[in-house]
Design a protein around this nucleic acid. Sequence first.
DNA 1: TGTTGGAGTTCCTTTAGGGAACCCCAAACG
DNA 2: CGTTTGGGGTTCCCTAAAGGAACTCCAACA
Lengths: 150, 150
Amino acid sequence: MQRTNFSEMACSIARTLDVIGEPWSPLILRDIWVGFSRFEQLQADLGISRKVLTERLNHLVDRGVLERRPYDQRPRYEYVLTDRGRELLDVLMVMVAWGDKWLAGQAGPPVLYRHHACGEISHVDLACAHCGKPMHADDIDILPGPGAAA
Amino acid sequence: MQRTNFSEMACSIARTLDVIGEPWSPLILRDIWVGFSRFEQLQADLGISRKVLTERLNHLVDRGVLERRPYDQRPRYEYVLTDRGRELLDVLMVMVAWGDKWLAGQAGPPVLYRHHACGEISHVDLACAHCGKPMHADDIDILPGPGAAA
DNA sequence: TGTTGGAGTTCCTTTAGGGAACCCCAAACG
DNA sequence: CGTTTGGGGTTCCCTAAAGGAACTCCAACA
């Protein structure tokens, strides 16, 4: 194997990278999120090579993030997010928050999020799933878990 | 250019991928986060090619995510996270939450987070930076922002 | 019977990752 | 004062993966 296989590492970051770490994969998920669900649409919107798009879609389906399903009697297929896939969008939303803050420059963010609950233009922040208070890298201790390597 | 340049796209996901989207980059940040700061340490811990490690470190320094600084009179350097870099760890923490949930299997998560504020073993969740309520992909409308493409 | 459009394959070129060997430099050692 | 050691990289070769254009297949439709 030429490119290192991350899936065997005892690290959830590495394992997640095995799913969405290849070039284009997060952008494919973004496109499907916003409504581009068919091969031709994705190819045209992203400008990705058809060969690579095929590989990425197959990989995402294999990993259970996308489902390929027919939408016509003719051999036509669309790609839809599974539950796993929809939860992966969390990763993208945090990338958006970071990119908006540090890379958007003068022009400002390319897209805005309006939060249904409060109606405001906003962005995501990280909170503790247990107590709800802010939870960032400096707010935690890292401990070995049950699945730690030997 | 052979691999497509994501940095020019009007998309904060694509721009963030230009910074940390190459193979190994998130794992390098993880390692620096947990205390591996020197070239030899990173190379040994990750098992990454020295050539690629050099390229990645230079790229991350160029993008302002890491700072390379001497730690000795001898030509010895360590890599430390900048503010930008520390905020990128948010992305990694969300990847951990997803990987722990969907990929850890029987063995359970390789590492655990203990939240300082509440003292509990927990993980991150996404909240609205404005109102504090949960904020996931289905809880928002996406609107064009000032930096949208023409 | 021919054309169209979606959904891929195939094939070729170029680049980037893997890996081993090599290099430079400033202590520290004998 | 010549040699070893260790950190921090370069260089080089080989293979795999990205880009891109052309080609294929198939079921409607004209």
